[in-house]
Amino acid sequence: MPDIVLKNLDKTFDSGFKAVNDLTLDINDSEFVVLLGPSGCGKTTLLRMIAGLEKASSGSILINGEDMTGSAPVERGVAMVFQNYGLYPHMTVYDNMAFALRHGKNKTPEDVIKKDIEEISFICKIHGQLDKKPAALSGGQQQRVALARALVRKPGILLLDEPLSNLDAGLRQHMRVEIVNIQKQLGTTVIYVTHDQAEAMTMAGRIAVIKDGELQQYAAPLEIYNMPGNEFVATFIGSPGMNIFNAGVFDNLPESLKPDTGSGCRVGIRPEHFIINSGGLDKDKFIFINGVAVEAMEALGHEYILYAAKGADKFTVRLGGKTNIKNDSRIDLAASINDVRAF
């Protein structure tokens, strides 16, 4: 299976809108990479550039070390699942899957097509639907057919553009697992576009966080979560996202956490990394934020979300288990120095 290297990719549309800006990314063979970002951040454009559906304004795309920047999609050995699936409504599921094999660049004999379709339709669990037309299938089945149609070509690279966004929450969760399993089974290199961070966190080998066409951070999910590279990644990932403070809020911020910018430095702490400071904590291992006002509270059963404020800084705190904190009370909080990020 091939690896992909994107070098300094730029895409400016005719309207002058810059969708992708100087983006460099390398994707390993058989890796599952998720492009994650808010709507309009350029992640779909980037995927379409890898597919060959959009021309790069500058920069290059290397697949297996070969420059494919200007190549037609078919030469790149990619298959793609579109957001709305793009299943041909006038063909049965079988014909949809066979279409590329029958009429594509390399003609496949019918008996081989039949064997391949049987195999893939079992993996994707649509073997009972082969004679049906797409309109007769549920959303989840259509999604599987779209995936099966892409996989039956045995592509080296599979591109998925928000493939689960049209499904309901339960089915989405189920399909997340299925897609990852299928990817592991076939060893396909997958690039997966989504704006849903739960999808990204659960499916990705590595996540590329993109904002305004620029790569913000590229790392494994837990590294993105625990060591966000900048304030955008910190607040975008996590629900609620990381709290960002001006350093002055803390009573004892150690010098080691203050970057060269000095007093203007910003500090990030995830909501679940706060603990109640009821005394006895080591000053060298914890930072303190005392006299915090609790403005509102949400009880979710297994945890509490506190909407807290100190001075002008508003932030969220997530406390597990039971608590006797009340609305409008004042509390003292602390966080381990290991869990504090400085930007």
């Binding site: 999609p73 078919v74 793009g86 009429h103």
Partner: peptide, 15 residues
Amino acid sequence: IPEVYYETCLVDGVT
């Protein structure tokens, strides 16, 4: 006719 059908053709090498 949605453009996606032709894009699918393009990716699938049906030219």
